[in-house]
Amino acid sequence: MAWFEELGFGENPFSTDVRVSARSSVGLDRQLSELGYLVGSGAFVFVEGAAGSGKSVLLELISLRLGRRCVRVDFSGGHADLRSVVRKRTSFLSRIFGSAPRGLVLLADNVRGVDLESLELLKYFYDNDVFGSVVLAGESFKVAGLSSAILGRIGSRVVRVVHPTEEEAVAIVRNRLGSSAILGDSAVRRIYSMARGDFRKFLRMCESACETAVASKSSSVAEEHLASLEEPLAKRGKGSAATG
């Protein structure tokens, strides 16, 4: 029995899955409304933020808002097959008449070092309104390796995502844990300072702290559970993310 099941959770409350994160997100309202406006006005947007700061969560939130109109691709390999993405959204009749869908919203994650062909297709589809709006998300706008045509279309439409602050981290943990008192506010603050700004690491540390507390049959995370956080993290980090 997993530790969270003993506490009555159906799933890992500290999962790093974007869908779980989107449900409990705090502090992205400003970016979300800005992005919502830009997508609605048909802009070419770049979402910039360090690793684990919530870019993917922001994309998840906007895709929940847009529903079926949005298309998600991942550029992590530097390439995405945009043609097949568009073809999938082309209805049977449109395929016969050779017309393309219109006004889709492309949400592209992990944009860095994208190959020229994808960039040109991106531009082509944007110019011809197949993609009414394009949102690229990456760690840095400067080193994303975009072509001048794309840079000109983005202009100054860059949305910056920053790591949650300590207060927001506390609120996020409260959102995730609900009424459970396993992790007190002061413990959350301690873990936040130990994670040094990496929010994914923060979630994993919260998880292992809770796990040790449950294993030692105590009702809440105490100082001695936090002490052993740093070492087991290395071997546990990936595994717990996968199970979540």
């Binding site: 609605g40 006005s41 048909g42 802009a43 070419f44 110019d127 011809n128 309104d129 279309r153």
Partner: peptide, 23 residues
């Protein structure tokens, strides 16, 4: 998204669209 500026002043969509297909 109803309170977008261009809707407030009566435009159905962004009048400053940079798409060549727009106008």
């Amino acid at each position: 998204m109803a309170d977008v500026w261009f809707r407030k002043i009566g435009f159905g969509r962004n009048p400053f669209s940079i798409k060549p297909a727009a106008f």
